[in-house]
């Protein structure tokens, strides 16, 4: 079996989405952890030190390429999957099954993913793109990201977009976290129980922490 056959098959596609999804989850932990430095409330000294480390360390910048690849693979496979799955029932039901047997968010992964994608484009254009372009896309001078956050999150609509993005992420993960482990073949009930609990906690706490960041700036909790 060729790799190309494996990863275009229905099961192989899901493996890619699951593995990249889990990789993106580890990225979320790092991202949330580092950004939490804003709450030190020291005018951004600690946060900017962390941001500088991430932006100027060669190894991390190489890992960043891996992260982009992870996003691209996840999104491309996710959209392909969604399109193919939507084509499997030309004539639909008159009476929809609705929530009899499944949760709405488990059936809305494509929609939730698209909302995350829209958020992602806005988010990257706020911070990552200006910063990297200032660096000449290599290891040049970075912008003061803390100051930039302060300015960006003065606008209410921006804060709302970020909160909606975080809520979409929460629903996406509420299904995605545990689903990914099923996709990679975890059948052990003991571990599934643990992973379900962990997934629920993660899906609520991490997006909540992210959402608190723009809110904290907007409400002036951090200066």
């Amino acid at each position: 079996m060729k790799w190309s056959e494996i990863f275009t098959s229905s099961v192989g596609k899901k493996w890619i989405i699951a593995l990249t999804g889990l990789f993106l989850i580890t990225f979320l932990i790092v991202h949330a952890g580092l950004n939490a430095c804003i709450w030190v409330n020291d005018g951004g000294t600690m946060f900017n030190a962390g941001a500088h480390f991430m932006g100027s360390t060669v190894v991390i910048r190489i890992v960043e390429v891996g992260l982009m690849l992870g996003f691209v693979l996840h999104i491309v496979q996710g959209i392909m999957l969604e399109i193919q799955n939507r084509r499997t029932r030309k004539i639909g039901y008159a009476v929809a099954m609705g929530n009899k047997g499944s949760k709405w968010y488990s059936r809305s992964m494509g929609l939730l993913g698209t909302l995350i994608l829209i958020f992602l484009v806005i988010h990257l254009s706020h911070f990552w793109i200006p910063n990297r372009s200032n660096q000449g896309w290599l290891l040049g001078e970075e912008i003061n990201l803390y100051e930039r956050m302060k300015i960006t999150f003065q606008e209410l609509w921006v804060v709302i977009v970020y909160v909606v993005g975080c809520i979409s992420l929460a629903w996406h993960l509420l299904h995605g976290f545990q689903s990914a482990f099923r996709t990679i073949g975890v059948t052990n009930k003991k571990y599934l129980k643990m992973l379900n609990a962990l997934g629920t906690g993660f899906s609520i706490i991490v997006p909540f922490v992210f959402a608190l960041m723009p809110i904290s700036f907007y409400l002036g909790w951090i200066k």
């Binding site: 099961v11 799955n85 009899k100 047997g101 488990s106 059936r107 099923r182 996709t183 975890v186």
Partner: peptide, 26 residues
């Protein structure tokens, strides 16, 4: 189509086939 682990299948299966089998097949 591909499985996205929604669980609707397991809920309607007259023989109570567990979705755990899908993870095993994966």
């Amino acid at each position: 189509g591909s499985c996205t682990n929604t669980g609707a299948c397991e809920a309607v299966c007259p023989k109570g086939i567990s979705i755990e089998n899908i993870a095993r097949l994966n």
